[in-house]
Design a binder for these strands. Structure first.
Lengths: 226, 226
DNA sequence: CCTGTCCGTTACAATTTTGTCACCCCCTAA
DNA sequence: TTAGGGGGTGACAAAATTGTAACGGACAGG
């Protein structure tokens, strides 16, 4: 049963995360309200993952993270950084210092759970991220799920493969033939409307974000970031 | 259109790989029969991937690989090493030297294609391996496919998720409740036979390897390596 | 403005996937 | 050996997924 350390000075945020974790019944949760406490807990209990807010009284999140990554005993613990929305510099700083993932506040509990599960799994023998992220999208290759702005969207396997092809190379137009081959295995059947229909279904499921799948008339489709 | 360089002194092996690659119509293929030729081609044409046999006349595969990884222009090119079956030391040597994947001869063309596609994709912005391997199994998270001893087996999304849960932690027994939660999202419905039925279907699809999914009476199931 | 081509959309039917049930066998503990 | 619980298996019906056809609108070239 993995142990998660939550570090945040706002009690209600800690509670929110704890509640979500405990509901899954798969985790043990410990909490810390400031940086020094966090470091002490991390060293004493060696949790399997740390959720770390950047904004902390006393010692700020970046420094905590740096300390963790410099200590041999805590170096390997994955860290998810919580950052205020839009503070891009901080995010970059966090990643450089060794955070394994980050999430902007206000975050969706579901997305956080997803990323936690993913990081925990990654520290297993068979590593490799299963979540492919792109703007507000998180595509979970293990759960075959899409999390869009905190909302979980179930995809059928065909839809999943199609979206994956598009989202993998944002902005790049994928030819109809390419998509038909990679998703359906067709190698010459060009005169089918199946692709169009599935694109429609995908756009529908994406809701407001449907238009991000753009049509390249006569060529194919592309996933556009804007 | 990615360019693949095949390096092997056996012409029929080169042909086999070429044929498979060209059938996909997505690749340009160049070939080399010895190490020096390979290095020259790699530098001149900077292919997107190199399939490199260990056993080569003149300069052996390991040395070629080391040379490739030491040169700034060719350093980033992914290398798939072909090794004779069982030469474990060589494999380890290959990985240490910087090969990105390896495959034992005689290999299955389908599996090689899968790994090629995977490595090519990995060199895209959204990296991360999509293939989880375990003995004769290759589970492709992007294609939702299982390659078992060279045979492609289609899995439904439920089967895929279930197998993934088991194969992720080989030897570890996953409780029924855990599987029901992770695959179906059920949180309390314990009294269902759905899991049993799907295990049966999975074992069926695994054929001779079905027994690798073992029952832990009263607890759950586990995937065993032997 | 016309025209041919390509795409979006809807409806529908075939197919596949899925969960449940019933029955039986196996395992375990007494 | 027996009884009870748990799992294997096959059949089945409900539900979801999928591909196709048909119609109409949008677009580009003339």
């Amino acid at each position: 049963m993995p142990t998660i350390l939550i570090v945040d000075d706002e009690e209600d945020i800690r509670d929110l995360i704890s509640m979500n974790l405990l509901r899954e019944k798969d985790y043990t949760v410990i909490e810390a309200a400031d940086g020094l406490e966090a470091l002490a807990s991390a060293k004493a209990q060696s949790p399997d993952l740390i959720v770390l807010d950047l904004m902390l009284p006393g010692m700020d999140g970046l420094t905590v993270c740096k300390n963790l990554k410099e200590n041999a005993n805590t170096k390997a613990i994955p860290v998810i950084m919580l950052t205020a929305k839009g503070r891009l510099e901080e995010r970059i700083g966090g990643l450089e210092i060794g955070a394994d993932d980050y999430l902007a506040k206000p975050f969706s509990p579901k997305e956080l759970m997803l990323r936690i599960r993913n990081l925990i799994r990654r520290s297993n023998p068979n590593q490799g991220s299963d979540v492919i992220g792109m703007g507000p999208f998180s595509l979970d290759k293990s759960a075959l799920k899409l999390v869009l702005e905190g909302e979980e969207i179930d995809l059928t396997s065909t839809e999943f493969k199609l979206l994956l092809c598009l989202i993998e190379s944002p902005g790049v137009t994928q030819e109809r033939a390419t998509l038909l081959k990679r998703v359906w295995g067709y190698s010459d059947m060009i005169q089918t409307r199946t692709l169009d229909t599935h694109i429609k279904r995908l756009r529908e499921k994406l809701g407001d974000f449907g238009p991000m799948i753009e049509t390249s008339r006569g060529i194919g489709y592309r996933f556009c970031e804007s």
